[in-house]
Design a protein around this nucleic acid. Structure first.
Lengths: 182, 182
DNA sequence: GCCTTAATGCAATATATTTGCGTTAGTGGA
DNA sequence: TCCACTAACGCAAATATATTGCATTAAGGC
């Protein structure tokens, strides 16, 4: 019976919430490089050892918080047509990701375990799949999600991560136009 | 006079070399998460405080080492034609970056200061510019480097970083074909 | 309500980082 | 070549962070 069960309710969940919000609060006030686990523990009203045991180390914790914060709460806006849906979603995506906190979330996700990164790009796929389902329902034809990742998302993320270019709205619209041109 | 000069010769350079090779040696034998500064210091025959003072912290050191290791020693192979040059370069790039050490270098570069990342993508640009110069010299027409970054490099890097797909040779050739198709 | 045990807190220990100070060794000028 | 200047280093003490054993708390199933 009961082997290696993972608990989800009550105290355990409350502590996770406290720790997450402590991290987010600290991220607003200081650079990521100066945040420490004891600092988070104190703000969350928890013992440091609890954090170490649950999350392993700071990278994993930050990645976990970043993923939780990126988790979509709502579907992308429905503007009535696939092209405008796509533009609205991409522009918002680029703006969120290129902001200071967005960049931090990206690097945290990539520094943490590989599972965080997979989840993160899973969210993006999910959003694009939503747009695809809408397009099909409207009879506007298909939307190739893989191709959208390669032609639109990947360049935006690349330039944000490597800092060699700002993903301006015009640049994003250019990527979308290239994608739509069959 | 002499304000804030930076020394380059002798001991200082030797120590940098020792530390770099110590890091590379350690990276071969263990996971990046278990490497510590004192560990590196001992293998390099140096005091930990020296490393802390020169590089700040582990992230910056690893980023520095990764950048140094990515710095191109030779130009990409000259195969006689732009298309084959491009294919040769991209396939090698994808293979290097998707290897275990390649992934580590990428995340190290992105975790370290922003300057490391810029240098890193500068190397890629430089290689593509070399291919472009060759193509122009041969009278094969132009090669749009920015577009190559967006259409070929960015998707490869994206999938390596987020781990949602392996950049196989066939996949890379598909990206190249898409790029060449005007 | 009772039992089992995952999850936490506490405290002791081990490890890593920072810092003050004396020493070594590049660098430029005489 | 020698000398003055000082950046960069080594050492060791002080501080901060990470790990671990053990007692305690509280989910989840009965």
């Amino acid at each position: 019976m009961a082997k290696e069960m993972i608990r989800q309710g009550g105290r355990s969940a409350r502590i996770q919430a406290e720790v997450h919000s402590a991290v987010q609060a600290l991220l607003k006030g200081m650079d990521r490089a100066e945040i420490t686990v004891p600092m988070i523990a104190e703000k969350a009203g928890v013992t440091p050892s609890t954090i170490y045991r649950r999350w392993g180390d700071l990278s994993d914790l930050l990645a976990d918080v970043a993923v939780a914060h990126m988790r979509p709460i709502a579907d992308p806006e429905d503007t009535g047509a696939m092209e405008s849906d796509l533009e609205a979603f991409i522009l918002q995506y680029a703006e969120e990701m290129s902001s200071k906190v967005g960049r931090q979330m990206l690097t945290d996700v990539l520094s943490g375990g590989n599972t965080a990164a997979i989840k993160c790009c899973g969210f993006t796929n999910q959003h694009l799949e939503t747009l695809r389902a809408r397009a099909l329902a409207r009879g506007e034809g298909d939307l190739d999600v893989e191709r959208a990742i390669d032609l639109i998302i990947a360049p935006i993320v690349y330039h944000i991560l490597f800092g060699d270019r700002e993903p301006s709205a015009d640049y994003c619209r250019g990527l979308i136009a290239r994608f739509l041109k069959t």
